[in-house]
Deep mutational scan, measured.
Amino acid sequence: NQESVVAAQLIPINTALTLVMMTTRVVSPTGIPAEDIPRLISMQVNQVVPMGTTLMPDMVKGYA
């Protein structure tokens, strides 16, 4: 089963992602794949992401 990127903390809107903000977990439905974490660093979220929420492609500016 593929791991997806999950918020390790509350991420406010327009925050640039850092490694410490993200963790990985096997979730359903699947979100952004864990191997894309290096690509996500410094990208901004376009909404508030509560802790434990799976990051979906449409939540990250410039990802999709």
Rank of each mutant, 00 (worst) to 15 (best):
M43I: 14
M59C: 06
L10M: 13
T24L: 05
A34S: 14
M21N: 06
S28C: 15
I32S: 01
N14V: 02
Y63S: 09
M22K: 00
I32R: 01
T24A: 13
L40Q: 00
V49L: 08
M43D: 05
I13F: 10
T54V: 12
P33V: 11
T54A: 10
N46M: 05
Q2I: 12
A7K: 00
P29S: 15
M22F: 05
Y63N: 11
Y63R: 03
I41H: 03
M43K: 10
A34V: 09
N14S: 12
M22N: 01
N46W: 03
M43N: 09
Q44N: 11
M51Q: 13
L17V: 03
M21H: 07
G62K: 07
Q44C: 11
S4P: 01
P33M: 10
V6T: 12
A64Y: 03
M56Y: 10
M22S: 01
E35A: 14
A8Y: 05
P57G: 13
A16S: 08
V26N: 13
T23R: 10
Q47Y: 07
G62F: 09
L17Q: 00
Y63L: 10
Q9K: 09
V49R: 02
P29C: 14
E3M: 06
P38F: 11
P12M: 09
L19E: 11
L10T: 11
T18A: 07
M43S: 11
V6P: 01
T54R: 03
I32L: 05
R25I: 05
Q44H: 09
V49E: 00
K61E: 05
V20E: 06
I13K: 06
G31H: 03
R25L: 10
T24P: 12
I11Y: 01
N46L: 12
M59R: 02
V45T: 10
D36H: 13
V60P: 00
A7T: 14
A16L: 04
V6L: 08
Q2D: 15
I41W: 13
I13Q: 12
A34C: 08
T24I: 10
E3S: 04
A7S: 11
E3T: 05
M22A: 01
A64R: 11
A8H: 11
I32E: 00
V60I: 11
I13P: 10
A16I: 06
Q9G: 05
L10P: 08
E3P: 06
S28A: 12
V60Y: 01
E35C: 15
L55I: 13
V6W: 02
T30G: 08
A8Q: 06
Q44D: 04
P29Y: 04
T23W: 14
M59P: 01
S42H: 11
Q9S: 07
Y63G: 04
M56L: 10
M43E: 05
